[in-house]
Amino acid sequence: MAASADGFVVGDIIEIKYRVPQFAVDDRPPVTASERWVMAEIIHQDEDSLPMARLADGQVTDIRAYMTWRLVARAAERRFG
């Protein structure tokens, strides 16, 4: 969903689609790409800037308009008690 990310709140969990190159092995084509969904948590959301998320491997990224993402869980749904 490359829709607007305006509705994010800190703590929302999303998945971001990345294209990962796979290099040739044996007689396969030289380079192919596979698509992977990477889990991320929204760590910053402000009216004046792009939302920021921490990826599962600890890296931080902006959520840009061209990125394909899908919502996994809202922060409010994850709170206990």
Rank of each mutant, 00 (worst) to 15 (best):
D26F: 05
G7A: 03
R70H: 10
A75I: 04
R78H: 08
V9N: 03
D12I: 02
S34V: 13
A65Q: 13
M39S: 15
V31L: 15
D62F: 11
V72R: 08
I14N: 06
I63H: 06
I13D: 07
R70G: 07
V38E: 04
P21Q: 03
W37P: 00
Q59I: 08
K17F: 05
V20W: 08
V20I: 15
A24Y: 08
T32M: 09
H44M: 03
G7Q: 02
M67I: 11
E47V: 05
A5K: 05
P29A: 08
A24I: 08
A2K: 03
V25Q: 07
S34C: 08
E47L: 14
A24D: 14
D57T: 01
I16F: 03
S49M: 04
Y66C: 09
D62V: 10
R70T: 05
V60N: 05
I43M: 00
L50H: 02
E15Q: 13
M1I: 11
I13V: 11
G81V: 14
S49G: 04
Y66S: 12
E15S: 11
S34W: 04
R54G: 01
I43W: 00
Q45Y: 01
V10G: 01
Q22Y: 11
D12V: 02
R70I: 07
V72W: 05
R19C: 05
P30W: 07
W37F: 01
I42Y: 04
A3C: 06
A24L: 06
I16Q: 05
W37V: 02
F80Y: 12
D12M: 01
E35S: 08
R28L: 13
D27L: 08
Y18S: 12
A5I: 04
R36S: 11
V10T: 05
I16W: 01
E77L: 12
R79C: 13
E35N: 05
E41K: 04
P29D: 06
R28P: 07
G58H: 01
R64Q: 09
M67T: 09
A53V: 02
A56Y: 06
R28I: 08
I42N: 02
K17L: 14
D62G: 09
G11D: 02
M39G: 09
A5L: 03
D26V: 08
I14T: 04
M39F: 10
V38I: 03
Q45K: 15
G11Y: 00
L55G: 04
I13W: 06
D48C: 10
V38Q: 02
M1G: 09
G81S: 14
R36E: 15
I13F: 06
F8K: 00
P51Y: 00
A33H: 15
Y66E: 13
